[in-house]
Write a protein that binds this DNA or RNA. Structure first.
Lengths: 232, 232
DNA sequence: CGATCAGTTGACAATACTCAAATACTGTGG
DNA sequence: CCACAGTATTTGAGTATTGTCAACTGATCG
């Protein structure tokens, strides 16, 4: 689903969770103000502090939203997949982007200009509720991230992430990391060296088996305990 | 302002940023569904996972919203001051609170039940925009927090916090911590011992002068550099 | 005035980062 | 299809920041 080829922009918009339940007429309006563009991998979409004249939906590909330290180290806040949105914060507060965004792969993004979009929201309460739900959902995710960063060590954060992927991918005990290990390190708030060491440690200790980017959970019970208590 | 004694609940609601610009009629509806209650200090308001039947506004006092590790260590996400709200996330996504909340002082809180509130939002787009702005603002704050936790060391986080307080309080180079040092440690993602050591270190190094909970910024320039680069 | 709690300081341990180097991949041009 | 360049990943050695545990001081409040 959400695959592009076989649907109009209008239909595609209606299939995203952000615009689920929005009436056809309003979908037509939305697709009227939307601008679609293609991006190569590792292309900057916006930077922190840039004026935000609107926000984006991912139609194809994936985008990372991240913070950058003065020394160039990055912390990924969010990996945005097809059907999801990013950059809304600048539309409703502050008017500038609080983070950086860049493509991870070849991507097609839908841009919705602020002023036109705000007008549509005013006319359509259902749209407002979807937006409130999306922002609330993201706040929830950020709270979990803050919790993990300050209250758990890297092994615990990694364990929690693997279990999360396992659940999302619903492929039994097999899962794919979905990111390069360098990017995963940045998402977990650590560095590639540390991630690499802890992955091997978990493998040696019999928690998981590693084959490149594919992981098999060997001992789910102990992985759960590690994710919960954050200690070996 | 927002002081209680001299205004009705209706007026008070209209003076909060969440309900700024909402028409008198709708304010009357809001005050009709609102329930006000008093709380002593250090009283639990809700816990993570509790079903969220509504959300809160702080009328008097202050409330901390925080995550708790299994070992009982806490990470403060947000200190909520008069006129601000908390717990909205449960109203618009997930229906359970993602964090804990407890009073820091004697407080009076306004509770708005979800179902009634949602009905009012449907009827009033301005209200929806205010909510979107509030949630966006909080997302921005959380992003900064994630950035600080993962990309800065404790001295950098502390320096940034002191500068933030200094700006907010607008009292030249003098500022008050506004929290016990133990609570401040929890807000900065560290422990009291570490905070204590770093405060003395900053004082010895001539960045600040400490008198209990009152801080004087002695060398703003170097404090700014520390906040920016996170290194001594 | 004693008890409790907040804050400070010291000694130590441990997690994670830095720096460096070796190895394994990946994609591209020829 | 191969060779090469540029990344990505892994591993090693050393360091540093921060957390743990413990003891002590000081303040606050019945």
């Amino acid at each position: 689903m959400l695959s592009d080829r076989d649907m109009s922009l209008e239909e595609w918009l209606g299939a995203t969770s952000l615009f689920a339940g929005v009436e056809g007429m309003h979908l037509r309006d939305l697709s009227g103000i939307a601008m679609v563009a293609s991006y190569k991998p590792r292309v900057n979409i916006f930077s922190s502090g840039d004026p935000g004249a609107g926000f984006y939906l991912v139609k194809e590909g994936r985008v990372k939203v991240f913070m950058l330290s003065p020394e160039g180290k990055e912390q990924i806040l969010h990996v945005v997949s097809p059907g999801e949105s990013f950059g809304e914060v600048a539309v409703f507060a502050g008017q500038s982007f609080p983070a950086h965004a860049a493509t991870l792969e070849n991507s097609r993004l839908v841009f919705l200009p602020r002023d036109d979009f705000v007008a549509l929201v005013s006319a359509n309460p259902a749209l407002a509720f979807n937006l409130l739900a999306a922002l609330s959902q993201r706040l929830r995710q950020f709270a979990v991230m803050i919790d993990a960063l300050s209250l758990k060590e890297v092994p615990g954060r990694l364990a929690a992430h693997l279990l999360h992927l396992s659940e999302k991918q619903a492929a039994g005990n097999r899962l794919s990391l979905e990111l390069s290990k360098t990017q995963l390190a940045s998402l977990l708030g650590t560095i590639p060296e540390t991630l690499s060491r802890i992955l091997s440690k978990l493998q040696r200790a019999g928690f998981i088996a590693i084959k490149g980017s594919d992981i098999t959970i060997v001992d789910r019970q102990r992985l759960l305990e590690l994710a919960e208590f954050g200690k070996f």
